[in-house]
Structures are given as structure tokens and as C-alpha cells.
Design a protein around this nucleic acid. Structure first.
Lengths: 134, 134
DNA sequence: GTACTATTTAGAGTTAACTCTAAGTCAAGT
DNA sequence: ACTTGACTTAGAGTTAACTCTAAATAGTAC
């Protein structure tokens, strides 16, 4: 157990084999090879790809993850820079969430307007309302 | 006043002229033309592009905005379908926010770990911790 | 030993949303 | 008249992140 061919691994982590080979080209995850030069992945790789997917889920770009991977390779002396990198991603990601929320507010208001929850004949039109968001 | 050439309008709304012509090709906004066939935009267009940018800000795809625009052209009989469309976008967008938040939790935890706020020698490794998120 | 299946590679194709280029038109300024 | 600058078009190029194709190889099933 704890050795997976690329197909099996792809199933396990919810990616396609295409994507895994692509990530490998991009240096995100480099599996070992067997006697026939075939890739195999282990449980460390499962954990690592899991973490990568969390990073991607925050909106971190592949190029940034590449940078993170390179720092990681250089050992503990880069911990501070790695932390800074993650902090800047975190900051940006939170800002994106807030921006999206504010756009969602406008969309929600429009839905309410369609719902008739807001009078269609009131003095303030939807467009007037929108102005307040700028 | 309240008539803008494409350059002026682009400045006003924070887009490039390229993007505006592209949006026009995609039927998102169709400005009027003067005697020389040059585009001009008015304050209605300012409001409309503002709304479009809110929609884009929620993660709504151009193809979905196109659909919305087509329904709008067909008049009040499509209000219900427009509302449904916006509701499905809203639902998806909220789900995306929540997913991103959960990824951000993991990233924050990693930052704390780097910070030494979490002991590096504790029984539970970062990888063990991560498992709980799956 | 032949078919089937999973792999391998390099490289081409896809998608969404722009972004830019080239060649031409037009009006205003000097 | 000529230059400058903003515009016009069709269509090509870019970016990020995949996604797929084709041809070859290697192990497994009958």
C-alpha cells in the first residue's frame, strides 16, 4: 500500500492524469519513478497535493505556488519569505472576498427589486440606488 | 454634456477602449453612433456599464450576462427568468465565497505555524491537522 | 501470442476574457 | 497643406490553467 500509479492517484485526489502531468511540468509536484520510468505517488504526495489544492483554493496563482515550492526546496532559511508570501496571498484573498461581497450586495438588491419587495414606483430608481455603491 | 467618445467613456468607467469594443462585440453594451460612425456613450451607458461591472464582480460569466441582456431586450415578460438567473448566480457566488474562506482557514493556520504560534514539536503535524479539513 | 489497458512523451488545442496590431478615416490645429 | 490624435475595422496575439492527441511502450488476461 501507499504507492499509487498516476491514474489511481488522480482518482484519489480528484484530479485528472493530464492535470497531474501538467502540475509536474510546472514543478508543483514531482513523483518518483519505477524501473519502467512510470510515475508513482505515495501518501506524502497525497498530503502535498492536498495542501496545493488549498493554496489554489485561496486564489494563489500557479506562479506563486512555484515560488513557494522553490523556497521550500531551499530549506528553513526561507521560512520567513514563505510566510510573507502566504501572508500577501491571504491579504489579497480576503480583499477579493470583500469585493465580491459588495458586488453581491448590489445583485441581491436587484433580486429584491425584481421580487417586488422594493416598490417599482418609488422615487429612487435602481440606478439611483446603485450610485451609492460607487 | 452627457455624451462621451469611447476614450473619454473608457476613462470615466475605468475600462480600456479595447475592452469596451470587446464588450460591444459580445453584446453587453451597444453605444449609439454619430454622423461619422463613431461611438458615443451617455449617462445611461455609465449606469449600465456600472451594473455590468457589479455583475462581473460576483463572478457572473460573460455568457450569463449576455443571456441576461437578451432577456432584458425581450421586455417585462422575462422578469421572472432574469430573477432566477441572478438568484442562481448569487447562490453560486456565495458558495464560492464559503469555499474560499475554508481554504483561507488552512492558509491562515499554516501562517500561524510558521509564526511559531503553534509549536513545531507538537504531536500533531501540519499535515495531520490538514486531514481534518477533508 | 495477441488483445487490452495503463502508462509514456512532445506538442497542439481549448476556454474566458481580454489586449493589441495594422491599415485606414476624419477633424482640428498651425 | 500637413501633422497630430482620436477614432474605425478585422483579425491576431496573450494569459492562466488546463485538456487532449498521437504514437510508442510495457505489463496483464486469455
Amino acid at each position: 500500500m501507499s504507492k499509487y500509479g498516476i491514474g489511481e492517484f488522480a482518482n484519489k485526489v480528484g484530479l485528472t492524469t493530464y492535470t497531474l502531468r501538467y502540475y509536474e511540468k510546472q514543478n508543483l509536484i514531482i513523483p518518483k519513478r519505477d524501473e519502467n520510468d512510470r510515475r508513482y505517488y505515495d501518501d506524502e504526495d497525497v498530503k502535498w497535493i492536498g495542501f496545493i489544492l488549498h493554496l489554489k483554493g485561496t486564489g494563489m496563482l500557479m506562479s506563486e505556488i512555484q515560488e513557494y515550492v522553490e523556497l521550500r526546496k531551499q530549506g528553513d532559511s526561507t521560512i520567513d519569505r514563505r510566510k510573507q508570501l502566504l501572508e500577501s496571498v491571504k491579504k489579497r484573498s480576503l480583499a477579493e472576498i470583500n469585493e465580491r461581497k459588495s458586488h453581491l450586495n448590489v445583485l441581491s438588491h436587484k433580486i429584491d427589486w425584481y421580487d417586488g419587495k422594493l416598490s417599482h414606483k418609488v422615487d429612487e430608481s435602481f440606478e439611483e440606488y446603485l450610485k451609492r455603491f460607487r
